[in-house]
Design a protein around this nucleic acid. Structure first.
Lengths: 190, 190
DNA sequence: CAGCAGTGGCTAATGGCGTTAGTTTGTAGC
DNA sequence: GCTACAAACTAACGCCATTAGCCACTGCTG
């Protein structure tokens, strides 16, 4: 019988894909093992346990989100860049709800934690957008947190079906983008 | 041996309190039973199972959040009301991270679901704030979603220690509030 | 005050999941 | 081809959620 030929990256990638399909709560070691063609305990040769798997998926998801936002905003500036970033981020969360859910509630252990690094990558991608607005350097961190919070909140609420009533959700995203744009353009004069 | 004298509300309240202490993921039927002085299966006389318990906690948390925001904004208007609402909401999430986490990812089953009702209560509380801004009625839903998303995202990220680097988090909240205020005051002129 | 019903508690048992220990076996390098 | 390492396996444990079935306290009815 040939070996499965797994490694840590393959296990985490398969876990992320499975989480997207069955939901983060439905991601189980047994199901993941079946998915990659192996018995459950064999997974422990590649990941230390479910906690470690979750953290790996979270780091992957953050890195992918950073990449999606970064490439979407390439060569754009101002509102154009903000719009592209918001859509890229939101679309990523909707397309990969399970792996993004893994990022919620993970506590980075320190500055070398891959989760920390990937999280900073997301911020870098948004930084590039904000640099084309005239945000005073001293307020950059606040602006970054504001944009990140707004888009994180919007994407997770939409992903969880948190927007129930009638109005069109895409229109709401445009409205949010417009509000952020107005607010960022007038960032300096308190 | 005297009876414990539990009912559904008491079980859910104890579950919410326990979730705040040990984290939503650490909320287990066994721990909850021990907490209320009863054996695990006895809980099933009051809640249908863990799913039902979670939904009850979520509905409770949303109702409490709505109340916190509603009372904080009593008699206030405009930016004053927005500031009070934002702080009340954020402080509630920080003070009750476990029960608020229960609200993430629950899907309301229908219009009579207590979760739906409580969720609408939260929106009502924010609506009262937005009514003192000159948001065109047609855009009210979008404004509501924008404010809700921003505060939900900010509160959950802060609650999960998602803001790692140096800048003061309370200052960031003030900055977010200021941005929302600017954006809402100029809501109409595209 | 007695009896009766209902309800809230209990014990016992099941199945699934995460995890660990210990064993086998494929595979890469000499 | 032998050896050694790594990747798979089987077996077993403990925790958790859940169900079935039993018992006893409580409150109503006569």
């Amino acid at each position: 019988m040939p070996r499965a030929g797994l490694d840590r990256a393959a296990v985490i990638a398969a876990g992320a894909a499975l989480a997207d399909e069955v939901g983060f709560a439905g991601l189980t070691m047994g199901r993941l093992a079946e998915r990659v063609g192996v018995r459950t305990p064999s997974l422990y040769k590649h990941v230390a346990g479910q906690e470690d798997l979750n953290r790996g998926i979270a780091a992957l998801a953050l890195a992918e989100a950073a990449d999606a936002v970064g490439t979407a905003t390439q060569g754009r500036a101002g509102r154009d860049a903000l719009t592209a970033a918001a859509h890229a981020f939101r679309d990523f969360v909707l397309a990969h709800p399970g792996r993004y859910a893994a990022t919620i509630g993970v506590e980075p252990t320190g500055p070398d934690d891959p989760i920390t690094v990937a999280g900073l990558g997301v911020l870098d991608s948004f930084s590039a957008v904000l640099r084309s607005y005239a945000v005073p350097p001293a307020e950059m961190d606040h602006a970054l947190r504001t944009v990140r919070s707004s888009l994180h909140g919007f994407a997770t609420l939409q992903s969880a079906n948190g927007f129930q009533w009638s109005a069109d959700v895409d229109e709401s995203l445009e409205w949010l983008i417009a509000l952020l744009d107005r607010g960022l353009r007038s960032a300096s004069p308190q």
